[in-house]
């Protein structure tokens, strides 16, 4: 039988033990940062004008050199795809070596060492589509990283911490755009980060700088005077694979329904 005195003793004991627990609040770094500096004034976006792309591959070359992706490794942060639609309704598409050396032949690379020659008169339409990480507003790669090694910066760019990534490959699997791969040297997840080291210093990305035709542009969607933001706001642009709900932030002019 418990006496009243004992019950009170227990109650005080439990309360005393519980008091320090209230000090344990989960600290959210984002909240702390927002309290200090307010929401970010920058949200990086990318604009690709597919009408201007000729598939020269200078952007891929520049990216590989700038971001130290081994030149001959068959992975790349950015790449260019070629789409050829024939009059009989067939789709042919390829991206040999990510178009690092451009498209030097009219033959379509079918893989396994096979090539398809398409006659000019059979072509209904043909075009190039540069691809890169979409820096999604709702990035599935960030969601699935088990250790938090990949994260979204306040300005929207998704980054990878090479010192913390365990190399499980879950983020690679989760990306609907095929933007991610394992770095051949560091063996960690790797992807385009809009040349974060350059844009955060006011420079252009390597691919934007390398493109001789102005097919690639980067801008800040939160700045109404930004020319890229203006185009995205006022003109008709498209995004890739909207059905996944990832809210990609690379916008395309002249997107075709055949683009994958």
């Amino acid at each position: 039988m418990i006496t009243r005195r004992e019950l009170l003793k227990y109650a005080v004991g439990v309360a005393g033990l519980a008091a320090p627990l209230t000090a344990l609040e989960m600290i959210n770094p984002k909240k702390l940062l927002a309290g200090k500096s307010g929401p970010s004034k920058v949200r990086w976006v990318f604009l690709v004008d597919t009408y201007k792309c000729v598939g020269c591959g200078l952007c891929v070359k520049a990216c590989k050199n700038e971001n130290e992706i081994p030149y001959d490794a068959n992975v790349t942060r950015t790449w260019v795809e070629r789409y050829v639609l024939t009059k009989d309704g067939k789709l042919f598409a390829d991206t040999p070596k990510g178009a690092r050396d451009g498209f030097t032949t009219n033959k379509i690379d079918l893989g396994l060492g096979k090539y398809q020659d398409i006659k000019k008169e059979d072509i209904r339409k043909a075009f190039f589509v540069p691809k890169l990480c979409n820096q999604c507003e709702n990035p599935p790669c960030v969601q699935v990283c088990p250790v938090g090694a990949t994260y979204q910066a306040p300005d929207g760019v998704v980054l990878v911490d090479r010192t913390w990534c365990i190399g499980c490959g879950y983020c690679i699997m989760a990306c609907p755009y095929g933007a991610r791969f394992f770095h051949p040297k560091y063996h960690t997840a790797e992807k385009c980060n809009f040349c974060y080291h350059r844009i955060s210093k006011g420079m252009q990305t390597a691919c934007v700088e390398a493109c001789p035709f102005g097919a690639r542009r980067i801008g800040n969607i939160k700045d109404p005077n930004d020319p890229v933001a203006r185009i995205i706001m006022t003109e008709r642009v498209g995004i890739l694979k909207s059905e996944y709900g990832t809210k990609p932030q690379v916008y395309y002019i002249g997107l075709d329904e055949e683009v994958r």
Partner: peptide
């Protein structure tokens, strides 16, 4: 790889 596969896709 066969036909149209993007450059970073492998059986990881």
């Amino acid at each position: 790889k066969e036909l149209f596969v993007t450059p970073n896709e492998y059986i990881y």
